[in-house]
Computed example of a mutant assay.
Amino acid sequence: MILSRRVLLAGLALSGTKAPAFAQSAPESQMIPVELIENTLNLPSIVRIGHKHGDVIMVEYFDYNCPWCKRSAQGLPDLLKAEPDLSYVLVNFAVLSPQSVAATRAALAYLQLYGPERYLPLHLALFDMRGTVDGERALAEAERLGGDRQRMTETANSDQTTGWMKDAFSTGNDLGLVATPSFLIGTEAYIGGMSLEQKREAIARARG
């Protein structure tokens, strides 16, 4: 379960492994064109959680083997509880390793077969794992949550899954996202880790 070598190497160039994690101050925000936000929200692979029609939309581009994404996921339930009017959008952005690519294929297969309503438990479970999350471990966890392994394996290796991953990578590249996690909050991008408090401050700014 891998992408082509050229796509994978391009993704690795955006790994952002040197990005600071949860500095005392939040990453500097960058204004982004509305059409690029719309491109993200039109990706077929996104998962929308939280308020269906929130007053602020927050998007997270993440990788299942990013340690700072793990911390972000651990704080996600608290963020959704504290911000009931927030619409939160997850974007699988596998850029760190071949293992990340394989894990994302498994996760997207689960999404395609079982829908976004069942995705959040898998998302949190994968980030709760210790060590590297690869395709086999992701499939096993998805199976534990009720997924059919054979159908998920077939879907993970499908052209549609490959297309979804390429589209997400291309959109993230257009946005200039050079680290995971990266966030779009309102019309601003924040590249790098953010604490729960920093996220809430950025959401408040987006509300004006």
Rank of each mutant, 00 (worst) to 15 (best):
K18L: 09
E197Y: 05
R205W: 08
M194Y: 04
R149V: 13
Q160P: 00
D55A: 10
H123C: 01
L43Q: 07
A103D: 00
L90Y: 09
F183Q: 06
M194P: 06
R151C: 07
R105I: 01
L177F: 15
E141Y: 07
I191Q: 11
D167E: 14
D174G: 05
T187F: 07
T162F: 08
R48W: 11
K199M: 15
F22Y: 15
Y110H: 09
P44K: 09
I32N: 09
A106R: 04
F183A: 04
P20A: 11
P121L: 11
P20N: 10
G50R: 12
G115M: 07
G186P: 05
A107E: 03
A206V: 08
L96S: 00
Y64R: 03
L96G: 04
R5Q: 15
R207K: 14
N157S: 10
R149L: 11
E60I: 04
R130C: 00
A142F: 05
A109N: 01
D134C: 06
D134K: 01
W68Q: 06
I203L: 12
Y64P: 01
E188W: 04
A204V: 12
Y119I: 04
M165A: 01
T40H: 05
I2D: 14
E60N: 07
Q24V: 13
S100R: 00
T171F: 06
H51F: 11
A140M: 07
Q112T: 04
G50M: 10
L8M: 14
T40M: 12
T104N: 05
G172F: 09
P27T: 07
R118T: 09
I46L: 12
T161Y: 04
L145D: 00
R151N: 11
G146C: 08
A82S: 14
K70R: 15
T40V: 15
G131K: 03
G131Y: 10
G11H: 03
E197C: 04
I57N: 15
S15Y: 02
S100K: 03
N157L: 13
A73Q: 02
R151H: 08
I2G: 10
S25Y: 13
L79T: 02
R48K: 15
I203S: 10
A125I: 00
S195V: 07
R6H: 11
M194W: 01
T155G: 00
E28G: 14
A156T: 03
R200F: 05
R130F: 02
I57K: 15
G11E: 01
Q198D: 07
G163H: 13
S87H: 11
L3C: 08
L41H: 11
H123K: 03
L175G: 09
R200P: 04
P181R: 02
T187K: 14
T104D: 05
G147W: 07
F183W: 12
A10L: 10
Q198I: 01
G54R: 09
S45H: 02
V34Y: 13
K166C: 05
V56P: 03
F62W: 03
E143P: 01
G163F: 08
T104G: 04
G135N: 05
G131W: 05
E136R: 08
Y190N: 02
G50Q: 11
L175D: 08
G163W: 13
T153A: 10
Y110C: 01
F183L: 10
L175C: 01
A94P: 14
S72R: 06
A142V: 03
L184F: 04
H53R: 14
F169I: 09
E28S: 15
A102P: 00
D55V: 06
N92L: 00
P33F: 07
